[in-house]
Amino acid sequence: MNHDQAPTGLSPQAVSPQTVATDGGHHQQSPAAGDLSPAIETVITRMRPSDRDAVQQLWDDRFGFDPETSPTWLSAAVDPNNTAGIFVGRSPSTGVEGFICLDLTDGTWTEDYCSNHLSLTEADTYLTVHMLAVAEQSERQGIGRRLLAHAINVAESAGATGIAATLWHHPGRDARSLCKQAGFDTVATVSEFYDDRPECPECTNECSCTASVVYKPVDHSKRVKDGSLR
């Protein structure tokens, strides 16, 4: 997934898009479709300050360098006063293998993030998946599936009404299958969704990539442990 946008609680200055599951700002998309085998060694933890360089490198490798969005997100992720959070999948043998950017937002903000393709209740809380990325060498090991499952746990624990994401249509960075398996519905498919992205790793000029807006209502009958965003 991928959608370029700054996390809430930070300056409203627009940062380039591209996530979903999405990067945050306008739109960013993510890889990790079709995870099959479980990532036995990999554990999901909050991003630590010591993870910053590895997460930045993975962000750049999968979605292209963005001088504003990724540094803003990485700073927010280690700020206890910010609503945004980044969780990483880490292995003791290979280090950070993937990450997911999450933010708890109100209905108005989430609708705007998804280019007004959702009809949400303004006062309700929603979890927005800004980006989900898995290292190319770690794909198809269940890491993307586990990161997305953790996001669903966070939404349930936070009492969120639903989860929204924007998904980039591109081989190797397309999380549509992964999200469908997790119960997300496609709400809209939009061509040239990332037209304001400053650098697209797939387009040589102005970005013409397509993205889908997906949404999953939260089932609060399934409360889980350890689903705190903070």
Rank of each mutant, 00 (worst) to 15 (best):
T128H: 14
A155K: 07
K222M: 06
V43R: 14
S75N: 14
V15D: 00
Y113N: 11
L229D: 03
L229R: 11
D112A: 13
V218E: 05
A164F: 02
G183I: 10
C179T: 15
R46Y: 12
V224S: 10
A151V: 05
I163D: 01
G227P: 00
S11E: 08
N81S: 14
K180T: 03
A76D: 09
A135I: 00
G64C: 11
T204K: 14
Q28M: 11
A165E: 03
T19V: 10
G98A: 12
T108S: 13
L58N: 01
G24H: 04
I100M: 12
W109V: 15
L74Y: 00
V96T: 14
P31Y: 09
T125G: 00
S75A: 15
R90G: 02
T8E: 05
T72N: 15
G144F: 02
S119R: 14
L178K: 01
S177K: 11
E139T: 11
E97Y: 01
S177P: 03
G159E: 07
D124L: 13
R90N: 03
E68T: 15
T72M: 15
S70L: 06
M1W: 08
D61K: 11
P67H: 14
D106T: 01
L147G: 03
Q181E: 08
P217H: 09
F87M: 06
S11K: 12
F63H: 09
D60L: 01
A133M: 12
V55G: 00
R90H: 06
P171Q: 07
H130R: 08
Q137M: 03
T94I: 01
H169M: 00
A14R: 05
S115L: 09
C179E: 09
L120H: 05
T72K: 14
T45H: 09
Y215A: 02
T161F: 08
V213G: 02
G144T: 07
Y126Q: 02
H150T: 04
A33S: 08
D79S: 02
H150V: 01
A6Q: 07
A6C: 06
G227F: 00
V55E: 01
E68Q: 15
R145V: 06
K222I: 11
T8S: 07
T22N: 12
S157F: 08
G85D: 03
D174V: 01
R46M: 12
S50R: 04
Q141M: 14
C209L: 05
G9I: 08
G144R: 05
V55L: 04
T22W: 12
R46F: 13
C200A: 05
S91F: 05
R90I: 01
D4Y: 13
D195Q: 13
H130W: 12
H3G: 07
K222C: 04
E199F: 14
D226P: 01
D103T: 13
T121R: 13
Q57R: 15
T108P: 00
L167N: 12
Q29S: 11
S30C: 06
C179I: 06
L104A: 07
R223M: 06
S115T: 11
P12A: 00
D106W: 03
F87E: 03
T105V: 15
I143P: 00
T94H: 10
G64V: 04
S30Y: 11
P31S: 13
R140M: 06
V43H: 09
T110Y: 07
A135K: 14
G162T: 05
D185F: 09
G162C: 04
A175R: 01
D60K: 06
T204G: 14
K216Y: 02
C179V: 15
L132K: 09
A149R: 09
